Computed example of a mutant assay.
Amino acid sequence: MNLLDTLRTHRLLAIVRGDDPDAALATVLTLAESGVNLVEVSLTSTDALGVLRRARAALGPAYALGAGTVLTAEQAGQAAEAGATYLVTPALAPSLAEAGRLGLPVLAGAFTPTEVVQATTAGAAAVKLFPASLGGPDYLRALRDPFPQVPFVPVGGVDAAGARDYLDRGAIAVGVGSPLLGDAVRGGDLAALRDRVADFRSSVVPSAGAAA
């Protein structure tokens, strides 16, 4: 997959992390059905690889389903075997080199200018600005001055209102966890999840209703 193009087109990456594999799977499927075209399942989740396998089987080979919090080469290989078509890291990690060997694009975590350079040099398709909440949209704008060509995806503390601010300051997409998922990953209300998806999509792509 072309991760960079997919991020630029859809602008919303949902991050699924939880202790209930069945609820996590239901959350992934609900997100997909509601028009979220990029979902990441964090490997810190209970039976994350099983969730990835089941979600891939349900969604088919073309859906942009990734594995998150991928730190080691072993985890990168396991995620690929489970059906992940891209990887997400919270920081610079050995998984980047293995992802390159496997031909998987990576959204690599970085925060400082030095880390941004290291992530792009290592071949990251895009840079996950994490934790974005530490600097907020103004920090992203400051980073864009020396790195105008780097595709940034802020993650960490991004709500529906803040998503628009990050995009206005140059982000190509935003990554969102609990502000979007709510209690869905704990077996909560999936109808409420659908409503939150609609709110986020209207924030990141004003014409989302027509674009899906």
Rank of each mutant, 00 (worst) to 15 (best):
M1Q: 11
L4V: 00
D5E: 15
T9I: 08
L12T: 08
L12C: 09
I15S: 06
V16C: 07
R17T: 12
G18R: 02
G18D: 01
D19H: 12
D19Y: 14
P21K: 09
P21Y: 01
D22M: 15
A23W: 02
A24H: 11
A32P: 00
E40N: 12
V41E: 03
S45G: 08
S45C: 07
L49I: 05
G50V: 06
L52A: 12
L52F: 02
R54D: 13
A57E: 14
G60E: 04
L65T: 00
G66P: 01
G68W: 00
L71K: 07
L71R: 11
Q75S: 05
Q75C: 08
Q78W: 09
T85S: 13
Y86I: 01
Y86S: 04
T89Y: 09
P90R: 01
L92Y: 07
A97G: 14
A99W: 01
A99L: 09
G100P: 05
R101I: 12
R101H: 14
L102Q: 06
L104Q: 05
G109F: 05
T112M: 10
T112Q: 12
E115K: 09
T121C: 12
T121E: 15
T121N: 11
T121R: 14
A122D: 04
G123K: 06
A126G: 13
A132S: 03
L134R: 04
G136D: 00
P137N: 00
R141D: 03
R144E: 00
D145G: 09
D145E: 15
P146N: 01
F147W: 02
V153H: 01
G157I: 09
V158R: 06
Y166P: 00
A171F: 06
A171M: 04
I172G: 09
A173F: 08
V174N: 03
V174L: 09
V176K: 05
V185M: 11
V185L: 07
D189W: 08
A191S: 14
R201L: 15
S202H: 14
V205M: 15
V205A: 15
P206G: 07
S207H: 12
A210G: 14
A210C: 12
A211I: 09
